[in-house]
């Protein structure tokens, strides 16, 4: 089970409007304990990416308060890392230099940041790609570099915005399994956004279904399976029945 050392992220009555009448999110309240894996799922336009950006501090809420380890997102930034929908690598930097970028921007000395970057690359299974440029990598490899970059600062909270949406199913399953393995070692709290119910259930401790116009929390589904989770969990009857239940909840908000 998850070690529960108190609430880690708290959202209180969050609302977000980009224009006056455009209610993207409304009345989102949520308590997340340290080490949890929360996935937001919902129809397009339900504001799940916006919610992730609010937690990351990339956007400011129109109403409500966000606490991250007792601080606002802007002040908690050193604990946060974000993995974007696209790998967003700098095309002129080799893998290792891309992974080391956040450390470079923090002023970590060259040898130290390269050692850390090398460690992170091997963690995501890319030991041989450190001197490759992004154009030499496949989509899945780029995403691995992007995850390694996020992990380079040893974040306490990792936010991932549909990171595997563009990948084929096999790469996606592999990356899901690897993400859980990495998380075993370093139990960061995770927020994840996806369109895939199976992915959400395989990864998460809790799946939160959002409705749209405006985005509200519709249902919360607790996922009871213990970690480490094996790939064949996906074929178990319990998993499949939860999959059906979640799909029904999702259909209700469409």
């Amino acid at each position: 089970m998850i070690p529960n050392s108190g609430d880690c992220v708290i959202l209180e009555g969050i609302a977000k409007r980009f224009t006056k009448d455009d209610h993207v999110l409304e009345n989102i309240s949520l308590k997340v304990s340290k080490g949890e894996f929360i996935t937001f799922i919902g129809p397009s336009g339900c504001g799940k990416s916006t919610l992730l950006r609010l937690i990351a501090g990339l956007l400011k809420p129109s109403e409500g308060i966000i606490h991250i380890n007792g601080k606002t997102p802007e002040l908690a930034d050193s604990d946060l890392a974000f993995v974007f929908q696209d790998a967003n690598l700098l095309p002129w930097r080799k893998s290792i230099a891309n992974v080391a970028l956040p450390l470079l921007l923090r002023g970590v000395p060259k040898l130290e940041r390269e050692a850390k970057a090398r460690m992170m690359l091997s963690l995501v299974g890319l030991n041989n790609a450190e001197n490759k440029y992004p154009w030499q990598l496949s989509g899945g490899m780029k995403m691995r570099v992007s995850i390694a970059r996020a992990l380079s600062i040893s974040p306490k909270i990792l936010l991932l915005d549909e990171p595997f949406g563009a990948l084929d199913e096999i790469s996606r399953d592999h990356l899901n399994e690897d993400l859980l393995k990495i998380r075993e070692k370093d139990l960061f709290t995770t927020f994840f956004v996806t369109h895939s119910v199976a992915e959400a259930l395989f990864l998460s401790t809790r799946v939160i279904v959002l409705s749209r116009n405006p985005g509200r929390i519709h249902t919360t589904i607790d996922v009871p399976f213990s970690y480490p989770r094996k790939p064949d969990l996906r074929e178990s009857p319990e998993f499949l029945s939860l999959l059906a239940q979640t799909t029904r909840a999702l259909r209700a908000v469409l």
């Binding site: 890392a81 974000f82 974007f84 700098l90 970028l101 921007l105």
Partner: peptide, 26 residues
């Protein structure tokens, strides 16, 4: 400059000078 890459730098809390040196000039 790619807006997404700007967000990566924002997420890393890069200074304006770092943004110029490591993102805008290349």
């Amino acid at each position: 400059v790619d807006k997404n890459l700007l967000e990566v730098f924002k997420m890393c809390h890069a200074t304006k000078l770092q943004e110029i040196r490591y993102l805008r000039i290349p």
